[in-house]
Nucleic acid binder design. Structure first.
Lengths: 195, 195
DNA sequence: CTTTGATTTGAACGAATGTTCATATAAATT
DNA sequence: AATTTATATGAACATTCGTTCAAATCAAAG
């Protein structure tokens, strides 16, 4: 018996997913070859198959992990309170979380069509659970009489689209800090859904 | 001399761009082969090169044409008026236009990274011109004292992201008509930027 | 040091890629 | 009917693709 601990797979394994994430985010899943990923890791293409059964699994693993992490992080931030308090918390959480992980977010939104049907269904279900968090906040606000909700599903999608869009233009070295961006978006979200 | 009029290229030419648009929107530029496009047109792959110098030109032509059409349509709708009137006009125009051309819009937002650097610069400049239309409306509203603008560039991007997001979930056969969707989004946009 | 087995290499596989081109087809002018 | 030329074919090109696998490598256990 040998090589149970201290083997390279502990190191190479994560690096494969890491390289795949960076390359998929930059060039797109279909445009990235297994050989490019291998080169980024510093290994031959054949070695990748010790860590993934195929290329498709790299993509679906990245997506599932992202959605799982997002849902877990969100659950950790959830507190009881008024709808307005919850909405502010959700807004600030969403922006902060997405700014910190622009690569994962980019992949999660751009590469859905490159998922196998079954993988797509699984990832879509996780995404739907996250969206439902916001929708139930908006519904609570409507019951409290503080939010003007015509169709809670549409308002949910509109708010999420607005918030997630921040990843397409925000640069850490840019004019505004993440805190300032958070504040501006929170102002807009609050006004957009308020009565 | 022969074949100046009535030749097949009048028919095949547009069909090539049309097939490319549909397939790029569905599967992504990198995932679509010239042979798939040819099959959709009902022709052999070699014949495509009577209508495009290469695959990249198909993408950049689609994008430029879309941005040109968008800017021209927008120019045709532009009227003098208050900032609020202009914003409503912009909002309704944007949603209506984007709902009618979901394939073009999808490509224009998803395939930017597959453009050659020079093509990217050209398309990005057109997109920027369109965004500037909205930004100047927001600035006018700030001067009039009716809009609360902290950073006009951010508010511009936020509004556009929210509006464009409608293409990701709207289905013509769905629960709501385009008119109803327009109305809901206009309510949200107006409130989001108002003082 | 030898053994053991996890890890990596490097070559090979068939299939698919974008593009080219000589050849064939067919429509419109002469 | 003969000629001309735009259009399309179908085979071929050099690469690259995802994936497999026997053989080499190498670190830890005995």
């Amino acid at each position: 018996m040998a090589r149970t601990a201290g083997s390279h797979s502990d190191i190479t394994g994560p690096r494969v997913l890491d390289a795949a994430m960076r390359l998929f985010a930059r060039h797109g899943y279909a445009a990235v070859s297994m050989r490019q990923i291998a080169k980024e890791v510093g290994v031959q293409a054949g070695a990748l198959y010790n860590y993934t059964p195929d290329k498709q699994s790299l993509l679906s693993d990245l997506m599932r992990r992202h959605m799982d992490d997002l849902l877990a992080a969100r659950a950790a931030h959830r507190h009881p309170g008024t709808a307005l308090e919850k909405l502010e918390e959700f807004t600030r959480f969403h922006i902060r979380y997405h700014l910190d992980r622009s690569d994962e977010v980019f992949i999660a939104y751009m590469e859905l069509r490159n998922l196998t049907p079954e993988n797509f269904i699984a990832v879509e279900a996780l995404r739907r659970r996250y969206e439902n968090e916001l929708e139930s906040i908006l519904r609570q606000g409507a019951e409290e009489g503080v939010f003007a909700i015509t169709d809670s599903r549409i308002e949910t999608m509109a708010v999420i689209a607005m918030l997630t869009g921040v990843t397409t233009w925000y640069r850490a070295e840019g004019r505004l800090s993440a805190d300032e961006v958070e504040g501006i978006y929170w102002d807009m979200v609050r006004k957009a859904v308020s009565v």
